[in-house]
Design a protein around this nucleic acid. Sequence first.
DNA 1: GTAGGGTTAG
Length: 553
Amino acid sequence: MKLLHRSFSSFPSSPLQTFLTIPQLCSNGRLQEALLDMAVLGPNMLGFHDYDALLNTCVNKRALREGQRVHTHMIKTSYFPPTYLRNRLLIFYGKCDRLADAHKVLDEMPDKNVVSWTAMISRYSQTGHSSEALTLFAEMMRADGKPNHFTFASVLTSCSGLSVFQKLLSQGMSPNYVTYASVLTALSGLALLDHGKQVHCHVLRRELPFYAVLQNSLIDMYSKCGNLSYARRLFDNMPETERTSVSWNAMLVGYSKHGLGKEVLELFGLMREGKRVKPDSVTLLAVLSGCSHGKMEDTGLSIFDGMIAGDYGVKPDTEHYGCIVDMLGRAGRIEEAFEFVKRMPSEPTAGVLGSLLGACRLHVSVDIGEAVGRRLIEIEPENAGNYVILSNLYASAGRWEDVNSLRAMMLRSAVTKEPGRSWIQHEQTLHYFHANDRTHPRREEVLAKLKEILMKMKQAGYVPDHSCVLYDVDEEQKERMLLGHSEKLALTFGLIATGDGIPIRVFKNLRICVDCHNFAKIFSKVFEREVSLRDKNRFHQIVGGVCSCGDYW
DNA sequence: GTAGGGTTAG
């Protein structure tokens, strides 16, 4: 369709710019002019290529309103879009985070194809709506849609992966490198080292060509599953020319999460010497958080100054500022952190204020914490964590009436917090525990054992730390609440279920509390077990009563 | 000829 749109348009333009078609305008990034043309053209005047170009541009620019106008134009002019364009519409709404609108497009599609299903599933996955992604995948199978590698990779992003991975194998498909990368990511999220190793073996047997993406996800999997030395071996075995910034970053993050600040700085030094790969913003985040977890605040600060001075080719953004706030706050330098936030060139984000609030909670800095927490609740009322941390801060300062009023506030705004859970793998099964668990089939046995080991623990010097109890209850009740913490239950289960001397590996979805950390240290000494505890952010490798984090996390 | 998938960070 070669229409001379310009003759319809009153858009003032120089003579040279006349007679551009809508797709041409779009590919020149002149979306607004293309939309003007669209608006003045009547029914049947726009064709497939016009709509395709318009929608594609809106997708790239994440231009929600503009895309909606295109959609409306189709409807008003009774244009019946073919599948290809409907998919574009679906992708457009998905990318603009209008998942309900995207789903509506999918539902109304008379002839969905594998792209339609996959686009919707992947958006659900990418935005953390994993149950929707899985439901849709099931619906696709019922509707006899044939999933391909794209579909599997999308689904794998959002779920534990193994059953989907097996389904793929049972369909006679052989995984490609992206499938492996996706399933490895899912496994590292759950810290399933054994499964990760299985997938690695699978990869080795396949003798696939070298894919940096796949190697990177292996490095990440090993490091997130607590096997840093293996991660490093893979990293070292990568040909230098093939290493990308992601490879370096994955390794740096691994060291950082294990609290190994020195190793982070060494590797960062190697990266800079090598000069093959430039540090990027994630690299600097990893280095700064390495300093933070490795108690090297002053090094961290000087690197940050270096960033501002342009030493690394990366300018600090909000995330980096947040990292410094976290670092100073964690180290108890609350005032400094507060000053730092005030001096930020842009308005501090919820993330930055959240780090500061967390530090105030840790060091019981009530005044600053109260100011920061109130502000945070104002700008992010839907985040349960804000109420919880502020309430915890009040609790540790004994301000119970404020604790109660915050709880009431939380109820009013109907926010809920993710319940704490710990899990441990035993004989191919994941055993989940939550606080004061009443669901695990062997809970009676676990509780009895916990009582029993508590005696030995106390003899060895375990003193329950009541500051971790955030309710206004008597001492005896406090102790009972502490004992109910899910990581203690999981540790006890590990002791029952595994033989002497076998390391116990526990995972938790939130941060570990001081009391449980202390418990785990003494536990490791008394029962001569190596304990590896991965919390939401990082690792604790505990041997003989000493933790790799140096009691700093 | 053709849209949809993947690795580090939060």
